[in-house]
C-alpha cells in the first residue's frame, strides 16, 4: 500500500514595510520549523521571479497564505499566479481575535511581539492540521 505524505505549503507575505509583515515572516518561519515534515514554503516573489516549478507550487501543495495587512498580497498573488489557496489567514484578524496589539517595530522584536509571533504560529499550525485532515 502506498502512503502518500502530503505537505502543506505556507506562503508568507513578509511585507517589509510594515511591522505585521515582520510578524508574519517570523510566525510562518516558526510554524515551518515546528512542522518540518508536514510543511514547505516558497518566497512569494518567486511566483514572478522563479520558473515553472515555483509557479505550480499551489497546484502541488494545498496552500495556506498568511498576510500582514488587508491588501492580502500573499492570498492574491498565490491565486493569480499559482493556484487557489486552501486557507487565507490575516495577521490583523488573528491579533484581534486574541486581543493582542499590533506590533510597532519593523525588527528586533521584544517579549510582547514574540508572544504575538507565538500566537500566530499556533494559528498557522492549527490551519495546517485542518488542511491535512481535509487532504
Amino acid at each position: 500500500m502506498d502512503i502518500q505524505v502530503v505537505k502543506v505549503g505556507i506562503v508568507s507575505c513578509s511585507g517589509e514595510e510594515i511591522p505585521e509583515g515582520t510578524l508574519c515572516r517570523l510566525a510562518c518561519r516558526q510554524a515551518l520549523d515546528e512542522r518540518p515534515g508536514e510543511t514547505v514554503t516558497i518566497c512569494l516573489p518567486l511566483f514572478i521571479a522563479g520558473g515553472e516549478e515555483e509557479r505550480t507550487f499551489a497546484q502541488n501543495y494545498p496552500t495556506i497564505t498568511v498576510d500582514g495587512c488587508d491588501k492580502m498580497c500573499a492570498a492574491k498573488a498565490t491565486e493569480m499566479l499559482s493556484g487557489k489557496p486552501s486557507k487565507s489567514l490575516s495577521i490583523p484578524e488573528i491579533l484581534k481575535k486574541h486581543g493582542l496589539k499590533p506590533p510597532t517595530k519593523l525588527r528586533h522584536f521584544g517579549a510582547e511581539e514574540d508572544a504575538a509571533v507565538k500566537v500566530v504560529a499556533e494559528e498557522i499550525a492549527r490551519a495546517v492540521d485542518e488542511v491535512l485532515e481535509e487532504a
Binding site: S14, G15, E17, I18, P45, C73, A74, L81, L106
Partner: peptide, 23 residues
C-alpha cells in the same frame, strides 16, 4: 534595508513591500 531606512538614511531611503509589486 532596515538599517538604511531607520538609521543611516531615514527620510531619503524608503521601503515598500515587495509582495505589493507581485500583485
Amino acid at each position: 534595508a532596515y538599517e538604511l531606512v531607520e538609521k543611516m538614511r531615514p527620510g531619503l531611503a524608503t521601503l515598500t513591500c515587495l509582495p505589493l509589486l507581485v500583485i
